[in-house]
Amino acid sequence: MNPPDLITILISGGIGLVAIGAVGMAVSRHLLRLVLALAIAEAGANLLLVLAGYRWDAVAPILTGATVTRPMVDPVPQALVLTAIVIGVGVQALAVALLIRVKEAYGTLDIRELKTRVEQEICGAAGIAPPESANKPGGGQPYPVPVTTSRESA
């Protein structure tokens, strides 16, 4: 495999990760999965950023004392990615800390259920009737009992 093909594969990997993350964020309802999807998308963005300075015929930008025969890759994106990764770690740790508290308070991490509960609480605090839920079944039927699989409750 010659090197330009490798770059094609890496680039599609980066774009694929961003797309997978975006799908995950659009489709998931569980907050932990949303955080994981965000982490995947971030990995893709970091890969794209480091590829912005990649040259297939070049070596790492570290002087070893030996005479340099080949060009070196651009050092700037590598430094940027180092920064971006650490920022991502901080934000994810913060997200997990908040999830622990939300789970403790509401007993669920389902984003739609949480949205309804928060809406009810805000309206309750303001002393007004909560709005009709958009997910409410028609015909005055009661809500279906939420199905919790053993995997989710674990």
């Binding site: 680039i11 774009i15 590829l51 300075g53 990649y54 040259r55 930008p61 651009d74 700037v76």
Partner: peptide
Amino acid sequence: AAQLPLGMTPMVVGQAIL
């Protein structure tokens, strides 16, 4: 990405820093 000059991107700041 197909339009990007990948693998031979312009090194402006990077070259000067190297």
